[in-house]
Amino acid sequence: MSILVYAEHDNSTLKNETLKTVAAAQAIGGDITLLVAGFQCQSVVDAATKVNGIKQVLVADNAAFEHQLAENVSLLVTELASDYQHILATALTTGKNFMPRVAALLDVTQISDIIAVESADTFVRPIYAGNAIATVQSLDEKKVITVRTTGFDAVATDGQCEAVAISNSNDAGNSSHVSDELTVSERPDLGAASVVISGGRGMQNGENFKLLEGIADKLGAAIGASRAAVDAGFVANDMQVGQTGKIVAPDLYIAVGISGAIQHLAGMKDSKVIVAINKDPEAPIFQVADYGIVADLFDALPELESKL
């Protein structure tokens, strides 16, 4: 069997999550090809050739793929699809955007957000915001799959394989990129951080998120937020942890002033150790926390920072 894995990147860095999608491909079993579609993305290609467990890297370096527009990338992947039985992408916003388009062009349905592989055609995925776990068999000949990375451990990156340039230039011509407003942060990426500290409605305003920063700096943590905090405008949308935001599973997750709505829990309950700081002892977050402390966060946070 051959498997095509779409590399998640921003033209300069190969995202760590791709290593987990490769692990999912290994669980299916077969020759794995990693596709890098982008523009002026040589550093990504260099990193991709070092990913363990893959046979080759295909490189589509073309202006049409600079912003990985779904219209263009889906045409590229569909064109390449005849050589592969499985096509995998990471269930991040890029993969979620173009992969269903690939599936429809290939006349198959997509198996979204898998967290485990049972066999080459049977996969496990959460439904109902993680309140139920479905085992689904794909009846389509070709499998188009997105992978939730919290279900798989990253493969190593001390391998060596060949990069093969392909000349495909798929421009659907019906969409164009206007602008990006990306959050610039010195902190690790939410999806990749081993420690995450998140604030909720209890933070009261965006200014108070500064209280999390000192702790984040000491722990090398990423900062997240609940949907309530994002909806209230405290912080930017890309910080949202939850079923419809980022799904994280760090070694340590600290939930501050977060009550623990099921949509939030769906985004973090696979974390290894969960700490909850909340002044309401009845808050549902305490039902999933390994360590809870019932305290006013405005007292607890400065004290925690000073004692780390």
Binding site: N131, A132, T135, V136, Q287, V288, A289, G292, I293
Partner: peptide, 26 residues
């Protein structure tokens, strides 16, 4: 295009302990 083989409840997380102080937490 798909066949639903089974639906199970998610693994439940055991509630842990409530600590009394930040010192104890750390």
């Amino acid at each position: 295009r798909t066949k639903l083989l089974s639906v199970t409840p998610p693994a439940t997380r055991q509630a842990g302990i409530v600590v009394e102080s930040i010192d104890e937490l750390v």
